[in-house]
Design a protein around this nucleic acid. Structure first.
Length: 658
RNA sequence: GCGAGUGUGGCGGAAUUGGUAGACGCGGCGGCUUUAGGUGCCGUUGGGGCAACCCGUGCAGGUUCAAGUCCUGCCACUCGCACCA
């Protein structure tokens, strides 16, 4: 049998994914970081992260899962100790028809020692996965323990069951089940023919029907003794008060967030810097012996962590008493290092401390970019770590990343490319063939960064083609000699139109690249500009060449961050001594954007029927009149009466007629 | 199952504040250049129709003068679910 520790995802149908060996859950002592101490701060500080996508903040909020409820006690017949349960719905207390215990609950274990049936059920549960998705989708199963709890209000006897859907890691590991008003409890009760007692009716006065599913909304209490007639909200307070007064329970805030288990029984990870001493217990490795490094002469035999088989590495002496002791052989979760590496980047050469003042100066990171798959774990751990470092005086910032961009994945034929799944496209091959500029241009152009990107070899060729066109136009323009100075007021109509396109492109690209981070549309606008400049390149008048020079300079400046090598060269070609990296971002000229006339779309009943060209300063009456006179519009109005005309200035006219 | 997203031509995508759906690119088609192939250049390209027009943004409803965009209900796919990193 394999002696190893598997990840959840390596367990398939209760067997090891590679060897097929039967897998069982076993408890081992492990190291945890108490992230739950920071649950409230991690939650509340989300509201002060305007530079983060709302989507990620929502996922973190749900993950932390703060809830307000009541922890209450159910006495058990014939036993001294009571059963504690947590509920967010004390208003449903009169609807409790059974209790549920997690298979790992201490009471379940105790019973299993003397009851083989329960022991067998617990063992069966241990073979199933623990992943939340597995627990949530598996068939609900349970076993009556024979114990009877006493309802604190009615005094009635309630059966106590062990149930596979009750999680030891949330709340107290035991639940009061209210099948009428909780869907999981309902399914379980239906399966085992347990009573379903409705105690909440819809607020609109209609009858409650729990024959097909649980009624999980809040409403008005029924069948609830003195509390009948209260709303769920009133009953929450009244029942919580009553329980508190009787000493049977109290209000409690609960979190879904669990402590961060950082122990890994693997070689590849930073050693946990603890020395286990038989006399002194767990002793931290003193500062002057840090960092603890992994041994390099290591044998991998596939069975467990190699560190556990290397006494020459783990045998040491206790820093406190000097006696024989052993190093901790568990290593850290690799999320541990990724939670603060960016802080270390600021002072990577400091070999005397973890961080110094430079980290305090540089943090928080202005713009952090990572995949959406890190929305919860990595980004939550990094936030937690930052707060711990702040509280230790290592940094000043309470949050690690001021702005967050969650980029999509790169897909090839719909399959994801990633570290763990193997990169299916080797960018190096394309870099060798087309250059790094082309590959970057394609990557920026193919999709907005937060969306997934479909890799396309012909798309890369298209990016290459565009760069060649840009290069060619600059060359042919430059070969005709230096361009004359631009006199913006002396341009003819066509030249003014080209110049307007140049400045519209600068305005749009500035917004797309600088504010929206939609690099794809920014690149597209430069492509449009280049198409327009190609058409205008025939004009070899002084004014025409000056406009072309201005347009080419704009294109090169905008593309420089994405296509640096090509633009570095082209900028020099265009007659500049200073390199393009030192050049300022282009600015648009508002006067170049002014248009004398606007083309307005004319709709009849919302359908496009024509266009009218009107002076930009046309009055509403003139716009209406021109729209109504348009021949095709006339045709559609022939047998109708105009009821209303809607004018959207500079855009469209909609004639409502019937 | 729960949480968060996405869905638009043959394909990647655009439409930023409810106002011309399909920008830009790929692919296709036609032409020019070329002995030819390739490259390059020009034109064309959502579907149907000779045309006028009609239809069209996952599906079904709704709100509005006007809906890809807002609302309600569904469907499909993607990401996360704590030991993949």
């Amino acid at each position: 049998m394999d002696q190893t520790v598997l990840a959840n995802e390596q367990v398939v149908d209760g067997k090891g994914w590679r060897s097929g060996a039967t897998v069982e859950r076993r408890e081992i002592p492990q190291w945890f970081l108490r992230i739950t101490d920071y649950a409230d701060e991690l939650l509340e500080a989300l509201d002060e992260l305007p530079g983060w996508p709302e989507q990620v903040r929502a996922m973190q909020r749900n993950w932390i899962g703060r809830s307000e409820g009541v922890e209450l006690r159910f006495d058990i017949q014939g036993r001294d100790e009571a059963l504690n349960v947590y509920t967010t719905r004390p208003d449903t207390l009169f609807g409790v028809s059974y209790m549920g215990l997690a298979p790992e609950h201490p009471l379940t274990r105790e019973l299993a020692r003397s009851n083989p049936e329960i022991a067998a059920f617990v063992e069966e549960c241990n073979k199933a996965g623990v992943a939340e998705a597995t627990v949530a989708t598996m068939e609900k199963k349970g076993l009556d323990t024979g114990l009877r709890a006493i309802h604190p209000l009615t005094g009635e006897e309630i059966p106590v069951w062990v149930a596979n859907f009750v999680l030891m890691s949330y709340g107290s590991g035991a639940i009061m089940a209210v099948p009428a008003h909780d869907q999981r409890d309902w399914e379980f009760a239906t399966k085992y023919a347990l009573p379903i007692l409705p105690v909440i009716a819809p607020a609109d006065g209609s009858d409650v029907d729990v024959s097909n599913e649980a009624f999980t909304e809040k409403g008005v209490l029924i069948n609830s003794g003195d509390f009948t007639g209260m709303t769920s909200e009133q009953a929450f307070e009244a029942i919580a008060d009553w329980l508190q007064k009787q000493g049977l329970g109290e209000r409690q805030t609960n979190y879904r967030l669990r402590d961060w288990g950082v122990s890994r029984q693997r070689y590849w990870g930073a050693p946990i810097p603890i020395i286990n001493c038989p006399a002194c217990g767990q002793v931290p490795v003193p500062d002057d012996q840090l960092p603890v490094e992994l041994p390099e002469d290591v044998q991998f035999d596939g069975a467990g962590s190699p560190l556990k088989q290397m006494p020459e590495w783990y045998r040491t002496t206790c820093p406190d008493c000097g006696g024989e002791a052993e190093r901790e052989t568990d290593t850290f979760d690799t999320f541990m290092e990724s939670a603060w590496y960016f802080a270390r980047f600021a002072c990577a050469d400091n070999d005397g401390a973890m961080l110094d003042d430079r980290a305090r100066y540089w943090l928080p990171v202005d713009q952090y970019i990572g995949g959406i798959e890190h929305a919860i774990l990595h980004l939550l751990y990094a936030r937690f770590y930052q707060k711990v470092m702040r509280d230790e005086g290592l940094t000043a910032a309470g949050e690690p990343f001021a702005n967050l961009l969650t980029q999509g994945m790169v897909l090839k034929d719909g399959a994801k490319m990633s570290k763990s799944k193997g990169n299916t496209v080797d960018p190096q091959e394309l870099v060798d063939r087309f250059g790094a500029d082309t590959v970057r241009l394609f990557t920026m152009f193919a999709a907005p960064p937060e969306q997934s990107l479909e890799w396309s070899d012909s798309g890369v060729e298209g990016a290459y083609r565009f760069l060649k066109r840009l290069w060619h136009l600059v060359r042919t323009h430059v070969e005709q000699g230096a361009a004359p100075a631009l006199d913006a007021v002396a341009l003819n109509g066509d030249q003014r139109e080209v110049r307007r396109k140049v400045h519209e492109t600068i305005r749009k690209a500035t917004d797309d690249i600088g504010r929206r981070y939609t690099f794809n549309t920014g690149v597209a606008s430069v492509m449009e500009l280049l198409n327009a400049l190609y058409k205008a390149a025939d004009d070899d008048s002084d004014a025409g060449r000056a406009v072309l020079q201005e347009g080419l300079e704009a294109a090169v400046l905008i593309l420089a961050p994405i296509v640096p090598h090509v633009c570095h060269r082209l900028w020099r070609e265009l007659g500049h001594d200073q390199p393009v990296v030192d050049a300022a971002w282009p600015r648009w000229d508002d006067t170049a954007l002014v248009q004398d006339t606007h083309s307005l779309v004319v709709q009849v009943n919302g359908k496009l029927r024509g266009n009218v060209e009107l002076p930009a300063d046309a009055e509403r009456d003139a716009i209406e009149a021109a729209a109504l006179e348009e021949p095709n519009v006339q045709r559609f109005l022939a047998d109708k009466t105009v009821r209303k005309v809607i004018v959207v200035p500079g855009k469209l006219v909609n004639v409502v007629a019937n």
